[in-house]
């Protein structure tokens, strides 16, 4: 092939390449890590999803700010863990009964993407709870991320 023809082919190829410019990207995913919890009842030794009425939650130390306020027909809910300390507790009221749940975890900053930024991932190490209405708490997925996977099951 003659040198000038080669050049011509290359030039056209390059022009096409540089037209495909990079555009500004926007974040298209959830950036908030949250602990996903569900209510369950054991009936005939088979766990079944349950729902509760008059459900109120606040974080220990934040009684002035309710996360759920007298919510009805709640079968699953989300809790915000602290970004700054390795333990977060919550006060749950189901009807007239009140329990506390405290989570101990390790934290890790995780870059989702340049356009979405950093989120905190949590790894639940242990759960402490009182048992006025709660029977037990089971950790089914110790990794708390921005996803919707259930992390804990609360048995009533």
């Amino acid at each position: 092939m003659d040198f000038r023809r080669v050049c011509f082919l290359y030039i056209t190829g390059f022009c096409l390449l540089f037209f495909s410019c990079e555009s500004e990207k926007i974040c298209e995913q959830s950036t908030v890590s949250k602990l996903n919890a569900g209510f369950y009842l054991v009936q005939d030794s088979i766990p079944e999803a349950a729902s509760v009425d008059s459900f109120t939650v606040y974080g220990i130390g934040r009684a002035d700010s309710l996360i759920y306020d007298q919510a009805n027909s709640v079968s699953s809910f989300v809790l915000p863990l602290s970004h700054s300390v390795d333990t977060t507790g919550f006060v749950l009221t189901l009807g007239t009964e009140t329990d506390t749940i405290t989570f101990l975890y390790s934290r890790e900053l995780h870059l989702l993407s340049m356009e979405c930024g950093f989120a905190t991932y949590y790894y639940i190490e242990s759960v402490d709870n009182t048992s006025n209405v709660i029977d037990s708490v089971r950790v089914v997925n110790e990794k708390v991320t921005t996803g919707d996977d259930e992390n804990i099951q609360i048995y009533l």
Binding site: G59, R62, S65, I67, P80, S82, H83, S84, T88, L109, L111, G117, F118, A119, T120
Partner: peptide, 19 residues
Amino acid sequence: ESTDLKISDPYWGDFSGAI
């Protein structure tokens, strides 16, 4: 490295840190 890292948290308070 990453610096000036801020995560807003309306419930427990904003977090700032660095990698």
